[in-house]
């Protein structure tokens, strides 16, 4: 766009030179050049200037529109799973997952003060349906939760 504006400025200078020449020396050649080539150059330069401004306006409008969207919503959009993917699969970053998942209910404390006995882990629930096996991470989910 800056090149366009610089070209417009140079063309305007040329057109002005032709016009000034025709005013200072009103003979057939300068007058004809000013009224034909000078007009064409000046009109072209102004059109280029208008085009550059239009491009700049559209670009700034696009940037403004993008910056108006709320950050969390855009983050959710970025992290949203594809339609064929399970929501859990896409939440690979623990920090983001903590931010975006609702807080789990805390278990009430035991009044006896004793530590709860460690129970054997329950059998794993049925895995979420995965359409494309290649998209499933290879890491163990129990490690993520830890």
């Amino acid at each position: 766009m800056k090149k366009l504006l610089r070209a417009a400025a140079v063309l305007t200078l040329l057109a002005l030179a032709l016009m000034v020449w025709s005013v200072l020396q009103p003979t057939p050649l300068p007058v004809m050049l000013a009224m034909s080539l000078g007009q064409a150059l000046g009109t072209g330069a102004f059109a280029m200037f208008g085009l550059a401004i239009l491009i700049d306006l559209r670009r700034s409008r696009r940037i403004r529109r993008e910056s108006r969207q709320p950050p969390l919503a855009s983050l959710r959009e970025v992290l949203a799973p594809p339609e064929h993917e399970s929501p859990e699969v896409s939440l690979r970053i623990p920090v983001l997952r903590e931010l975006l998942t609702p807080p789990a209910r805390e278990a009430p404390e035991d009044p006896s003060g004793e530590l709860p006995a460690i129970e054997a882990p329950a059998p794993a629930a049925a895995p979420a349906p995965v359409a494309d096996p290649e998209t499933v991470p290879t890491t163990d989910r129990s490690e993520d939760k830890a």
């Binding site: 417009a8 400025a9 057109a15 002005l16 000034v20 000078g38 007009q39 000046g42 102004f46």
Partner: peptide, 10 residues
């Protein structure tokens, strides 16, 4: 510089 004054000149 590119619009108003050159148009006046032209």
């Amino acid at each position: 510089g590119i619009g108003v004054f050159p148009i006046v000149t032209a």
